[in-house]
């Protein structure tokens, strides 16, 4: 597999000025991570683990204090290539209300390509196909404030797709949505990854969302704690608990049963897997 984003020994700190003394806060510490083309990676961590900060390193919004980040072989600290990087890596933020610029859906989706200087007919094509990809085409003439949270977030995703990036970073895109909106957004993300082969980096603190990824990276205090397939990562229940992180409910249940002496070999990730295993045990 081909590496797409490469973070090499990245540290990030900022200075917080208290009344008299300058306090240095380390957000990321000597972090190295490689993300391959076409992967669906979930980055997990609780508040303050540095996961959002890391996300903003991937599209040159933040530059590392130490170390280097390479996107598609381009060094993110290269000021001249800043916009090249941002067309390759799109970033979707948490609050859909604060990232929609125009008062008509299709004009907002066109905002990115317009900034890139794409010709008008080409923008039209891209906007239509982006809106179809997130299943919001029927809403193209609507005003964004009349849409639901999940729909707004899909419009925001369409706005990024219209720039034709090879990678989309989503920074807690579902944190402000209801369960239905979360589901809509997740289905869209999975579809984009499978059908268009777009690399997806999903920053989240919901375990259930992380389970859907090919690979889960768990962060704590600016460092990578665990990195691997969801099944492998969530089998380290003890480590996760020690760092105040949850595991999916199904895994949690089976873990507790196991510690009480029930014979279980493999940890389930989803409710349906859990039911199957329980049925097998209870027979």
């Amino acid at each position: 597999m081909e590496a797409f984003i490469k973070a090499e020994h990245v540290s990030f700190h900022y200075e917080n000025e208290d009344e008299h003394q300058v306090v240095q806060k380390n957000v990321l510490e000597d972090l190295s991570l490689t993300i391959n083309k076409g992967e669906f990676v979930a980055i997990l961590g609780h508040n303050g683990s540095g996961k959002s900060t890391l996300a903003k390193h991937f599209n040159a919004m933040f530059l590392p204090s130490d170390g280097k980040v390479f996107v598609d072989g381009i060094d993110t600290s290269d000021e001249e290539k800043k916009y090249d990087i941002r067309t390759r890596v799109g970033l979707v933020l948490q609050n859909p209300d604060n990232q929609i610029v125009a008062s008509i859906v299709e004009e907002d989706v066109a905002f990115g390509p317009e900034n890139l200087g794409v010709p008008a007919e080409e923008i039209r094509k891209r906007v239509d196909s982006a809106l179809k990809a997130v299943e919001m085409y029927e809403y193209r003439m609507h005003a964004p404030y009349k849409l639901s949270g999940g729909q707004k977030q899909r419009v925001a995703i369409a706005g990024v797709i219209a720039m034709e990036p090879s990678c989309i970073v989503l920074d807690e895109p579902t944190a402000m949505l209801d369960p239905r909106g979360r589901n809509e957004v997740l289905t869209t993300i999975e579809k984009l990854n499978r059908e268009k082969g777009i690399t997806i980096i999903l920053i989240t603190h919901y375990m259930d969302e992380a389970v859907k990824a090919d690979r889960v990276v768990v962060m704590d205090e600016g460092k990578i704690l665990l990195d691997g397939a969801p099944r492998e990562v969530f089998s380290h229940v003890e480590i996760l608990k020690k760092h105040r992180l949850d595991v999916p409910q199904a895994t949690e249940l089976m873990h507790r049963l196991k510690s009480h002496g029930v014979n279980i070999n493999e940890m389930p990730l989803t409710a349906s897997e859990c039911i199957k295993q329980l049925e097998a045990i209870l027979k």
């Binding site: 941002r86 799109g90 933020l93 004009e107 317009e114």
Partner: peptide
Amino acid sequence: MAMECRCYRGGEGRTRMK
């Protein structure tokens, strides 16, 4: 920040869909 992420850099070199 969202506008910067979408490569907004003022009016220069910007095209319009409509």
